[in-house]
C-alpha cells in the first residue's frame, strides 16, 4: 500500500466513525446496549436449559464468545468491502486493501468500546479475580489478524462471485459450533475421537487465549500462542497476496 492509500484509510475510517454517531445518541449507546442485551439473554436462557452453575458457565462461555463476535463482525463487514468501494475504485487509484482495512479499523474501535460493558458483566459474574486478564489486550491480536485475513479473502471472493456470502456465513457457523466455545473441551475423554478432532481445530487455540486468563486463571500456553499466531499470520498473508494478485481485475467486476 502506498502513502496515499494509508492516509486515505485512516481518514476514511475516522470519517466513518464520526458519521455513524453524528446524528444519534442511541447509536453510540447501542455499542454498549447490544452486547449487554445479548449476554443477558444468553445467561438467562442457559440458566433455564442447563442446571449447571450458571455464573461459572457464563464466564466460560463469554470469555471466548466476546472475541468470536468481534472476529465474526470483521469477516462479515469486510465481505462486501471491495464491492462497496466501487465509488472510489472505479474513479481513482487507491489500493483495494484500503476498504477491508477501513472496515477492520471501524469494527476494532467499536469492539474496544463494547469491552467496557463486557468488563461490567464479568465483574458481576465472577467471584474471584486474578491478575491474568491483564493479558487480554495481547490475546485479542491473533483474533483480530485472523478476522482481517479472512475478511480480505472473503472480499476478493465476493467481488467475483456475488452469491458467496451464504457460504461464508455457513462456514463461520460450522467453525463456531465445532470449536470449544459453547462447550468445554474436557467434555470428551482425552482419547475420544472428538478430543482428537478438537486438537486439529485452530479456533481451539484462539479460544484458549481468552478462556485461560478469564476462566481458568492461568496464562495462555506456548502452544496456544504459536498455533494462533502462525495460523492468523498465514491467513493474513494469503488474503494480502490474493488482493495483490487480483487487484488489476477488480475494475472489470465492480
Amino acid at each position: 500500500m502506498d502513502l496515499i492509500s494509508w492516509r486515505f484509510t485512516w481518514q476514511y475510517s475516522k470519517d466513518q466513525l464520526k458519521l455513524k454517531y453524528r446524528y444519534t445518541t442511541l447509536g453510540f449507546l447501542w455499542n454498549f446496549l447490544e452486547p449487554a442485551i445479548y449476554l443477558t439473554v444468553l445467561s438467562v436462557v442457559f440458566s433455564l436449559v442447563n442446571r449447571m452453575n450458571i455464573s461459572d458457565y457464563a464466564v466460560f462461555l463469554f470469555s471466548a464468545l466476546v472475541p468470536w463476535r468481534y472476529f465474526e463482525k470483521i469477516v462479515n463487514t469486510c465481505t462486501d468491502a471491495i464491492v462497496g468501494g466501487d465509488w472510489l475504485l472505479k474513479k481513482m487509484y487507491v489500493s483495494p486493501l484500503s476498504f477491508p482495512m477501513t472496515r477492520w479499523i471501524v469494527a476494532s474501535v467499536e469492539f474496544i468500546f463494547s469491552l467496557v460493558i463486557v468488563l461490567v458483566v464479568f465483574v458481576l459474574l465472577k467471584d474471584s479475580w486474578t491478575i491474568h486478564p491483564i493479558i487480554i489486550p495481547l490475546t485479542i491480536i491473533p483474533w483480530s489478524l485472523l478476522g482481517l485475513g479472512l475478511g480480505m479473502i472473503a472480499a476478493v471472493l465476493f467481488t467475483f462471485f456475488r452469491d458467496i456470502r451464504p457460504i461464508i456465513q455457513m462456514l463461520l457457523m460450522v467453525g463456531f459450533f465445532t470449536a470449544p466455545i459453547l462447550f468445554k473441551p474436557d467434555l470428551f475423554d482425552n482419547h475420544a475421537i472428538q478430543a482428537q478432532l478438537l486438537r486439529w481445530h485452530p479456533i481451539t487455540y484462539f479460544a484458549a487465549l481468552f478462556q485461560k486468563p478469564l476462566y481458568e486463571a492461568a496464562w495462555p500456553g506456548g502452544i496456544d500462542w504459536i498455533v494462533s499466531l502462525s495460523f492468523s499470520l498465514s491467513i493474513l498473508l494469503l488474503g494480502y497476496a490474493l488482493i495483490n494478485r487480483y487487484k488489476g481485475s477488480f475494475y472489470y467486476y465492480l
Binding site: F8, Q11, Y12, D15, K18, L88, M92
Partner: peptide, 15 residues
Amino acid sequence: IGFQPDLTGRENCYL
C-alpha cells in the same frame, strides 16, 4: 470524487 454526502464541505476537503 471521494465526496461523502453526509460529511461537511470542510471534512470533504480533507478526504
